[in-house]
Simulated assay, not measured.
Amino acid sequence: MSHVPDHFEETLRKAGLRVTQPRLAVLTAVRDHPHADSTVIAESVREQLPTVSRQAIFDCLNTFADTHLVRRIQPAGSGARYELRVGDNHHHLVCRSCGAVVDVNCAVGEAPCLHTTDDHGFQIDEAEVIYWGVCPDCVAAQKVSPT
């Protein structure tokens, strides 16, 4: 696979994972389609490796999420989506109309970025913030479409 960056092989090795063509293809698909769901990722992988099963692709995604090689997000009303941007403290903006997802930096800048007045004894290490709105393309379409 000539389109796979060399660092993906190193990334897998550092995570203690074997380097396989399906794993490289899944990482490449996630890189090429940030915030995509598993269906889009599977279609992309199968363009490169037609014999890879959907289950193998799902297994790769789950393994990568568990080992923090990819981040899995799941906005309300949406299936899981995947991205390579991990290890920083960013959040997401989701369009209510078309479902587009984009990264936004944390307004506070440090994890977990939200401090509750009562943690109920939990050791909080992460807060997930999703901003909802309407993207510029959908706003423009609404202005020109008949109501």
Rank of each mutant, 00 (worst) to 15 (best):
D118A: 10
T117I: 12
T28K: 04
H3D: 07
L27I: 01
A76L: 12
L17D: 02
T39P: 00
Q48M: 08
F64Q: 08
V101P: 07
A100H: 07
Q21I: 03
Q142L: 13
A107M: 13
I57A: 10
D59W: 09
L93Q: 14
V30Y: 10
G77F: 07
D103G: 11
H91I: 04
L114G: 07
F64P: 08
V26L: 00
R46K: 14
P112L: 05
V104Q: 05
V139S: 08
S44Q: 07
R72H: 05
E47C: 00
D6M: 12
C60P: 08
A36V: 07
I124A: 13
P136D: 13
A127R: 08
D137S: 11
L84W: 04
S38T: 00
S2I: 01
L61P: 08
D119V: 15
A100K: 14
R72S: 10
K143E: 09
A107W: 12
E47V: 11
L49Y: 05
E10Q: 15
S44M: 00
H35C: 09
H3V: 01
A127C: 12
A80H: 13
E128G: 06
E110H: 14
R13E: 13
G77I: 10
V94P: 11
L93H: 08
G109A: 12
M1V: 01
E10L: 11
L84D: 10
